[in-house]
Simulated assay, not measured.
Amino acid sequence: MGALPSLAQQGRDREASTALEEALNELEADPVGEAPGRFGFDAAELALHQAEADLALGRNEQARSRAEVSAAACTIGTPGWAAATLALALAEASTQPSDAAQRGLDVLDRVPPSRLRSTARARLGRLDVLLAARPADHVADLRERLRVLPPPVDTHGVAST
């Protein structure tokens, strides 16, 4: 399932569709994730991977819909919620920059910098780039919050640059 966004980014639509079909079959056959060899992804994670694949393929409306499903299935403030919320923001950036920026700020308000995963930081960086030329409410606030965001801390408590 994790290959879906990568396949989509490479423009390998047919293989991405096959990976999605396999994941849907696995999820349907074992919704709890207890089958041997199954990695245990759930419906929220599947929707997130679908949203990321849709983003890579330029299908922002589908990405938005799937990211909303994923975010709604997650507990607010968790890494999964942050990932889904930022995928939703990325899908909205071109048409609703103010909403996208507000979602980025919401993640920064609810997830302490020390708990912000590298993948969330990468999504925030992509969001910043997408919003850079968009004058809208909250965009300047988000850019400032990202500018002063402390660097990530490794497992030894050392900040990286």
Rank of each mutant, 00 (worst) to 15 (best):
M1G: 09
L4C: 05
P5F: 00
P5Y: 01
P5D: 00
S6M: 10
A8S: 05
Q9E: 06
Q10F: 11
E15D: 14
A16T: 10
A16E: 03
A16F: 05
T18F: 03
T18V: 15
A19K: 04
E21Y: 12
E22L: 14
A23E: 03
L24E: 12
L27W: 02
L27R: 12
L27C: 05
A29T: 14
V32H: 11
V32I: 12
G33W: 03
A35W: 04
P36N: 01
G37T: 06
G37D: 06
R38N: 06
R38M: 02
F39W: 14
F39M: 06
D42P: 11
A44P: 08
A47D: 09
Q50D: 05
E52I: 03
D54T: 14
L55P: 12
A56I: 10
A56N: 04
L57W: 07
L57S: 13
G58N: 13
Q62M: 11
Q62H: 14
A63L: 04
R64P: 02
R66V: 07
E68A: 15
A71H: 09
A72H: 10
A73P: 08
A73M: 08
C74R: 12
T75F: 07
T75C: 02
I76C: 11
G77P: 06
G77D: 00
G77I: 08
P79V: 12
W81F: 06
A82L: 00
A82V: 05
A83L: 11
A84D: 00
T85W: 03
L86Y: 05
L88M: 09
A89N: 06
A89I: 04
A91I: 02
E92V: 05
A93C: 09
S94G: 15
P97F: 01
P97G: 11
S98W: 05
S98V: 08
D99V: 15
A100S: 11
A101Q: 04
Q102K: 09
R103F: 00
L105T: 03
L105Q: 03
L105F: 01
L105W: 03
L105D: 01
V107Q: 02
L108V: 10
R110F: 02
V111F: 00
P112Q: 00
P112T: 08
P112S: 03
P113W: 01
P113Q: 01
P113F: 04
R115K: 12
L116P: 01
R117A: 10
T119M: 11
A120D: 02
A120G: 13
A120Y: 03
A122F: 11
R123M: 07
G125Q: 08
G125F: 07
G125L: 08
L127Y: 05
A132I: 12
A132S: 15
A133K: 15
R134A: 11
R134P: 08
R134L: 07
A136E: 07
D137Q: 15
H138W: 03
H138M: 04
D141A: 10
D141W: 00
L142C: 02
R143N: 09
R145P: 08
R145N: 06
L146G: 12
L146K: 09
R147P: 12
R147D: 07
V148P: 10
P150H: 04
P151R: 03
P152G: 05
V153R: 03
D154V: 03
H156F: 14
H156E: 13
V158Y: 07
S160L: 14
